[in-house]
Structures are given as structure tokens and as C-alpha cells.
Design a protein around this nucleic acid. Sequence first.
DNA 1: TGAGAAAGACTCAGTCTGAGAATAACTTGG
DNA 2: CCAAGTTATTCTCAGACTGAGTCTTTCTCA
Lengths: 250, 250
Amino acid sequence: MRAESTFLAGYDPTAFPPVAVTVDIVVLTIRDGALHVLLVERAEHPYRGRLALPGGFVRDETLAEAARRELAEETGLRPGEAALARVHLEQLRTYGDPGRDPRMRVMSVAYLGFAPSLPDPLAGGDAASAAWRPVDDVRDLAFDHDIVLADGLERARAKLEYTPLGTAFLGPEFTIGELRAVYTAVWGEPLHPGNFHRKVLSVPGFVESTGGTTSRGGERGGPRARLYRAGDATLLHPALLRPTREEQVR
Amino acid sequence: MRAESTFLAGYDPTAFPPVAVTVDIVVLTIRDGALHVLLVERAEHPYRGRLALPGGFVRDETLAEAARRELAEETGLRPGEAALARVHLEQLRTYGDPGRDPRMRVMSVAYLGFAPSLPDPLAGGDAASAAWRPVDDVRDLAFDHDIVLADGLERARAKLEYTPLGTAFLGPEFTIGELRAVYTAVWGEPLHPGNFHRKVLSVPGFVESTGGTTSRGGERGGPRARLYRAGDATLLHPALLRPTREEQVR
DNA sequence: TGAGAAAGACTCAGTCTGAGAATAACTTGG
DNA sequence: CCAAGTTATTCTCAGACTGAGTCTTTCTCA
């Protein structure tokens, strides 16, 4: 039974109902100390007028290429843009249950992105309807995008523990305080400045000093801070663990 | 430009080339103290005669259902089988680059499974060509399955650090020594028995005592061991980290 | 010029870790 | 039945790491 259908399918894929494949992107960035996500307003049925994650159909390209192309289109950045190249993109998960799109069976391969501060999407361009929104304000997205976003946030929070990807939210040079602000925004809780500082510098390859400092102190005072750039580590060892969440463990 | 194509695609999916969606499964189990993976021998072109991960086309069902159905078919276990229900299955990653299957564009949603000891797939059934193979002996799989398997193994190793899923490789009751054997097999390196024992019992919700013990000592001697069952934790806190791999971090 | 903020270095007690060892309960081969 | 070898489980101990708090110094702003 199964053997036959597999056999047939190998030669006649149309024996199965058509499936569309899209990529949807959860791109995160930090603005004004708060975590934001790029959303678009849907112009067409279904979910017309509702906010949704940016995305689109996959063409003759790899999934990763499709994700980066969509990102470029929705942010309005030219594909060659340097800022675009610095966005970290990784595959998140695939959502493909029947019925998630009322039109037909759609498999959506979701990508997760970490972006440094980017300009507002160009009004008037293809990305006219795209905008950065604070993640805390986001709800009632189209399709199953609330779940996709939640999965992306959880992945992002975990990634900050074990990888140096927090630096992907920042420019090429940054201070430890700025890096701490990233962690605070993503995890949603304050961190002990002294301990964070000690920990970051003690993890081999997390950051390396540029030798320079900021040209002036902070907005509200304080000495100039030393500047660092991302190091060559791909994993943090030891990890920077989130403040204890004893309870959530069950 | 993009706006138009998205618009069209919404109403005419056939405007895009056809895509087939399959699930492929990396099911792991432990036999004779070594990590094994379930593989099938391909009966048809392409890659005829080569070993491959079990998998098949997705029907009118969720991706998770497709994965569990394939697992049942390839292991030859009846869908109602209790052992089958105890297999942990989770989505691993989607592989969909053009050209990975010479016939047409195929998106493969890979699943990762942890199975307790299962019988050999029934010779003569649909699963005739399926067999458990030691992962260390596996190479030159069909398609991009070498990569899928490698990704699955890495995920499995990481999962054992942060989740109690090591218990999914065991029966309903097990000893700490058996659990340590799982870790040793998956990580491929020996662990300090005393420290492992202390650590497992100190993580809240990892295991809970059944009150019983094994009915006899080990094969080669030693006292009877206490029996445990899986606890209610979904995350291990603190985690059981792999022995230091300072170097691999860069 | 004084108050307040932040960077960065330290301190300290409690916790966790790896390595090793001790004890006791079993196994098997002889 | 006995000796040798294994394994479960518990302990010990020194070194490393952690969270919380302090101190000094440098800046910004009013």
C-alpha cells in the first residue's frame, strides 16, 4: 500500500495535491531599548488589513536566499547594502498544517533574523506597509503568525545564552553597556552590570577590544566606555544563562 | 514587481513551479551501548541501492502526523503500538535547496526521533528494507541525508544537555547507570559515574524514584540498582553540560 | 559647581564542579 | 563456597564560578 504510493509519487508528483512554499521572517531589532519586530499590513484577502510577518513565495533559489531576498524587499534596503549583509538569518521552523492558509496547503519555512538598527522601511516603496513594532504590543497577527513569532522570540532568548549573536543587534563597534542593553531588551529583565561585564570579558572569543573608547560619556553621565567588536567564538563557553526561572522548568 | 507576483500567486499558485513536500526522519535508538539510526535501502532511482533516511510524501495531515505515520510504517509497528507512542518526535529542520532531488523541487521537513529499544523491522513487511545501523558506520547516504543526519546528531547531543529526553531512549523504569549509558552513547565519551549520579538526582524533576530496585545486579557484578522513572521537568536546570570542548567553540 | 549616572574593578560568602576514593552489594569463574 | 572483578551510591576536597553589593573614578547636566 505505502510502497505503491511512494512508487507512484516518485514518478507522478501531481498525484498529490499541490502545495505552495513560502518563507516568513521574524526579524528582530532593538529600538529605543525595546525589542521590535518587522511586520507588514496585509493588502489582500485573507486577513486583509491584519498585521503579518513579512514573507513570500520561494522561487528558484535556496530557502536562505529566499529569506534574505524577502528581507531586502520588505526593509527597502538595496540587496547590496552593507547593513543588510550584517543581518543574521537562520532557519527557525516550518509550519505546514492543513488549514493554516484557507486558500490552499501552504508550507511556510520561517526564518529568524537579528538586525542592527535599520532605518524605517521606505514609504512609497514595495515595503510601504512594513514597519517595526514593539514585540510587546504585537498580537492577533494573520495566519498562525502569533505562534511563529512566539517561537522566534523563544529561540532568540535561548540563542543569546549560548551564542554571541547578541552582537548582531549592534554596530561593528559597541560598548559592554550596549551589549547589556541588548540582553535586557531580549530577555525582558535587568541584569547586574558588574557581573555582566565580568562574564562577557571572561568568555573567550565573545568580544575583543578595539583599543578605543566612546568619544563622550553616556546621555546621563558616566565615564567614556571602552569599545569592543565581536570576537571569533561561535558558541559561548561558559554560557550566559538567563536569571533563574526555576518555575518555568516544568 | 514583487507586489504583483505575490498578488498573482495568491490566486494562482500554479504560476510557480510545482514543489513536493516530504518528511524524512532521523530516528535514533541505543542498541548494545551504541547509538543507531533507522535507515532504508532505496529500491528506486535516484540513488537506487543506497541507504537513506526513512521518509515519504506528506498527505492530508499535519507534518507531525506524517512523521509519526512514516515511523510506524518503516519500523513495522502497528500505529496503536505502545512502544510507538513512547517515541519522542520533534521537527529538526527543512531542507529545500533546488537540486537536492534530481527529479523535481522537493522540500523535505526532517524530524528527529528518540526511540527506546525497538524490535528489528519486520522482514517481509513494508519495512523490509529498513534496519538499525550504528551511526558511526553510516556514510554516503542518498540525497543530502548525510547532512540531515549530522544535524540530527548535533541536535540530539544538545538536547541531552538541556532536556530530560535522554529518558526517551529507555523503558518506563530505568537505573541511573542505564541513563548514563545513554549519555555516553550519544555524546561518545565516558562520564564520571559518581558525578553523573549526583547531578541527575540534583536536577529537580529529571527523574523520580519508583522505590524499587533491579532484581539482580549488573551483568558483570555490582549491587542492585534503584529504579527511576522520568520526572515532570521539561527542561533541565541546571543543565548537564558535555565535558569541555574548549576548542570546538570557534 | 554639585548631584546623579555609569564604567569598571573588587570583595566575599555560598554554590557548583571535576577528580578521586571509600564502602558495600553483587556477579562469575574456579 | 571463595576470590577477583564490577558497579551503585555516597563522600571529600580543592578550585572555579555566581550573585549581590561596594568603591573609585569619570562624565553629563542643571
